[in-house]
Amino acid sequence: MGGISIWQLLIIALIVILLFGTKKLRSLGGDLGGAVKGFKNAMSSESDETKKAIEDTTEVNKTAQTTQQATEKKPESQKEQA
């Protein structure tokens, strides 16, 4: 009651096929699939770039910390020699 039965769906599908034809529907499906693939590729490459940027920032921070620690230790050893 109030729902769409399988027979109604089949009739609608038949009407759509008669209106547009199988070639147009096939090309429309191919275009839609290509668009979805392109979207997925763009999203995955964007997330890869984001991950690389985060890794690069982490490496730069680690290098800066080790450089800072090295410069902090250096004056102490010079004080001991004097």
Rank of each mutant, 00 (worst) to 15 (best):
M1F: 11
I15Y: 08
T71P: 05
D56N: 13
I54K: 06
E49P: 00
A35H: 14
E46C: 02
A64H: 11
S27L: 03
A64S: 12
L28R: 07
E80I: 00
G2L: 08
E46A: 11
E55S: 04
W7L: 15
M1Q: 14
K23Q: 04
E49D: 07
Q78K: 10
L10K: 09
S45V: 00
S47N: 14
E59G: 07
M1E: 11
E59W: 04
T57P: 00
D56Q: 15
Q69V: 07
N61Q: 15
Q68T: 09
T50G: 01
G29F: 02
F20C: 00
L10D: 03
T22I: 15
G38M: 00
T66S: 07
D31M: 05
L14C: 10
I11L: 05
T63C: 07
G33T: 05
E72Q: 11
T50R: 10
G2Q: 10
E76Y: 10
T50C: 04
P75H: 05
Q8M: 03
T57H: 12
M43R: 11
K40T: 03
A42S: 12
D56M: 02
S5E: 03
D31Q: 12
G3K: 15
L14D: 12
A13Q: 08
D31G: 10
D56I: 06
E76A: 09
V60I: 10
I12P: 06
D56P: 06
S47D: 14
T22E: 11
L19W: 05
Q69E: 15
I54G: 00
Q68M: 02
Q8C: 03
T67I: 10
G30R: 11
T66G: 00
Q78H: 14
